[in-house]
Structures are given as C-alpha cells and as structure tokens.
Computed example of a mutant assay.
Amino acid sequence: MTENADAGRGQRVPAYRRPGWFVVRVANPLMRWLGAASTLDVPRRITGTRQRVPVNILELDGQRYLVSVRGRTEWVRNLRAAGHCTVRHRGRHARYRAVEISGDPRERTLAAYRHRWGAGPVRRLLDELPDPADHPTFRLDPAE
C-alpha cells in the first residue's frame, strides 16, 4: 500500500521536509569533507550502493541515537530496510545495529536532541514538524 493510498483511507501520511539544493550540493558535502559532523553510511534499498549523509549523533545515558529532523527521509527508509549502518567521524568508523524507538523513549530523546542541537535549521525543522511521530528515531547498538 502506498502512502497516497493510506492518506485516502484516512491514515496519516508521514511528514518529510526535502532539503534544498544548497544543502544537498554545498552544505552536506562541505560538512562531510571538513569532518564537522558524523557521516551515516547505509546501503540503499534498491541498488545496494552506499548513501552517505551528515548526521548528529546524540549521546544520552550511555546510548547513541540518530534522529531524523526532516521526517521520513531516504536515509530513514534505507536504514529501516538494512537494519544496520556505519557511522564515520574524523577518520574513525563504527558499525551499528539500528533499533527504531517510539513512544515515550522517542519523545525523551527528541527533547534531549532539541536541547543539544535545537538552534537554527534544526529548530526550524522540529518546529515545522511538531509531532514526535514525524521524527524517526533510532538507537544505535554496537554491531557484533
């Protein structure tokens, strides 16, 4: 069933805020090149090629979390399908099993994420999509 079919049946369509040309073509590559953010490396659902996206990893109570402030992005869909990823930061990399969380744990994680990175574009995106269900959130467990 497609999202549009779901919407026609009264079910809520997951929100998504597409990044603009500047973010995709300039800001994200620059952040990856400078090492200013961690890079999520996840296999694409269809082709199996690697998708690399700058991300903010939240450390909370000894756990690592990944939050999609833009909603149901391609990396979210790819991570759900793969169930695992690699996170790279400043020449180091670690493999993780991704466990999607919901309910109270997601809301608590979102609150901590907003506190840590809730300025500028992150704040705007969280304000545009105020429902916690619009922000897929993953706990990153070390892969064995």
Results as ranks from 00 to 15, higher is better:
L129S: 15
L34Q: 14
R50P: 01
Q11P: 00
P43D: 11
L126S: 15
H115I: 09
A15I: 01
R12Q: 12
C85M: 03
V23L: 10
A94H: 03
N4T: 11
L110F: 09
E107G: 03
D61P: 00
M1F: 10
T39Q: 02
A143P: 02
H135S: 06
D104P: 01
R90A: 11
E74Q: 13
R45C: 10
W33I: 08
E100V: 02
R123W: 11
P19H: 14
L125D: 15
A15R: 14
A111K: 06
A111Y: 00
L34E: 01
D131H: 12
V55A: 07
P121V: 13
D134M: 02
E107Y: 02
G120W: 04
W75M: 09
G71P: 01
R32D: 06
Q63F: 06
V69C: 13
E144C: 01
R25N: 10
R108D: 04
V99Y: 00
Q51R: 15
C85S: 03
Q63P: 00
L58S: 04
A15Y: 01
W117M: 05
R12A: 14
G103A: 13
L58M: 04
P132I: 07
R95T: 08
L60G: 00
F138C: 09
W21C: 04
A112I: 03
R106V: 05
R77S: 11
F22E: 07
T49D: 10
R106G: 06
G103F: 04
R106F: 06
G35V: 12
V24Q: 05
A143D: 14
W21A: 15
A112C: 05
R90D: 04
A98R: 03
P132R: 06
A37G: 02
E128G: 15
R12Y: 04
E100K: 02
W75F: 11
E74P: 01
M31E: 10
Q51D: 12
Y16P: 00
H84G: 07
L34N: 00
T137I: 07
P132V: 05
E100H: 01
W21D: 13
R106Y: 05
N78K: 05
E128V: 07
M31T: 10
V99F: 02
G120I: 04
A119I: 07
N4Q: 13
